[in-house]
Design a protein around this nucleic acid. Structure first.
Lengths: 249, 249
DNA sequence: GTGTGTGAACTTGTTCACAGCG
DNA sequence: CGCTGTGAACAAGTTCACACAC
């Protein structure tokens, strides 16, 4: 399907000025961050080149799959040696949109909100926590990593000086819809919802649900199978961001 | 494939005593918790019956998909009216292994560990946080929801009185492997890793990675597309536990 | 009529196998 | 040689469409 001589879609597949974004299948999108993290580790350990075989082993993915995924971003492997770690990481960054800074606002400064705000993973990947909001007067005014917690009513004012691209909702479910409406009203078009409830957003808004207890549910499914028939080997890698493995690869 | 008159696999498909566990595709497994949460909401709102159409709309899934998924668990819909909310929820619970209690130990009582420990979602789904461990003397001895934080060295002793089924790792990456080894040594065979690092575990151990910053990366990918070509409608639902939607369903 | 359960068509994703480049 | 890039085969997942049960 991705390899017709002429693409059926409107999107041009001329290589363009190195900036062309061709259609990337969802299955690939969710593997890219995995590759990227491995490349990061390899880079830190001084490795300059990596083969699809090795990358695949680390990612628990077939080597052919790795090559197919990467060939979608362009073809910049070197036959006989492999991929340049740094260059490949840059390319993935570009396709994931991580070569520009994203500003994040976190709503609900409880334990989860603080955990995310302080997460080094965010800063390391160009996500800047640019604002934090909460309604608790005891929390408002507090500074976390240099960012002051403010009242939700200030959101519109905040966005005037600091455009915000992504809203992260870590409030109780009871107020999640209200804070969502505020964020949407302030022009935020991407939301990551950790509150255990469904949200309504206008069309054109991206909404991503993350439910930590669901991870446990999927895990318990596999363990239940495991206990019943001892058949661990039949448990495959599943899912996107959360992934289940049976032992080492 | 799932509907041959005689199954090619060894696993019996005789209905059995209502406890038979047939093979369930991974794609279905990750949708089951989604259905379950919707059923929970419906149950709370007093709805007793639901159609695949309605369930599918809430889950952002095709109605035929819902029927196919549910038919894998057995066929207990009523033609002409739909599925009994409570009965269906019970069936899903059973297949996810949620009709028994799972004991969880949380390692690393920072913000994320506390957030998970206090999450109502856990208790509501039969996950009991039965132990918590940390090395910080200032934290050891603290009680969170009645459970005392103890030193990792006590883990073996803890498991003797309280068998633990699932280990949740919310420590810094630097000590994650060490705590993993301790847990595996204590007989824990399922691990949920929130630390941003790869872990080695012996074969036969289930390992699931959750990387919260990856959720943001996937989100930024979609938003990058969104900004570049305005083509929101092309953004599909992806992934398992985290799911991206464009606006309301 | 209404809505499930399911073969069959279709789409998407994965793996194989190998030509061809460095 | 070794390893990428990719058509072609295969497998998995999704949607359609309709018979049939209530």
């Amino acid at each position: 399907m991705p390899s017709l001589p002429l693409p059926p879609d409107h999107e041009s597949d001329t290589p363009g000025p190195g900036t062309s974004l061709r259609r990337i299948p969802e299955a690939t999108v969710v593997r890219l961050p995995v590759y990227q993290r491995i490349l990061e580790e390899l880079g830190r350990s001084g490795t300059t080149t990596v083969s699809s075989e090795r990358l695949g082993a680390s990612a628990h993915v077939n080597a052919a799959q790795v090559r197919k995924d990467l060939s979608l971003l362009g073809s910049f492997g070197t036959r006989g040696s492999g991929y340049d770690v740094t260059y490949l990481a840059d390319q993935i960054d570009h396709h994931l949109g991580l070569d520009r800074e994203w500003t994040v606002v976190i709503a609900g400064i409880g334990n989860l909100g603080r955990a995310l705000a302080r997460s080094q993973g965010f800063a390391a990947r160009n996500f800047a926590v640019a604002a934090m909001i909460d309604t608790d007067p005891a929390i408002i005014g507090e500074r976390i990593d240099g960012v002051e917690v403010r009242h939700p009513d200030d959101l519109a004012a905040i966005t005037e000086s600091t455009p915000l691209s992504i809203g992260v909702i870590t409030t109780p479910a009871s107020v999640a819809q209200r804070v969502t409406d505020l964020m949407v009203g302030a022009g935020i078009r991407s939301l990551l919802n950790f509150a255990p409830c469904r949200l309504e957003v206008p069309s054109g808004t991206l909404l991503r649900y993350v439910d930590l207890s669901m991870e446990l549910q999927v895990m318990s499914f596999y363990q239940a199978r495991h206990l019943h028939d001892g058949n661990v080997a039949a448990m495959p890698v599943i899912g996107s961001v959360g992934r289940t493995f049976d032992g080492v690869g």
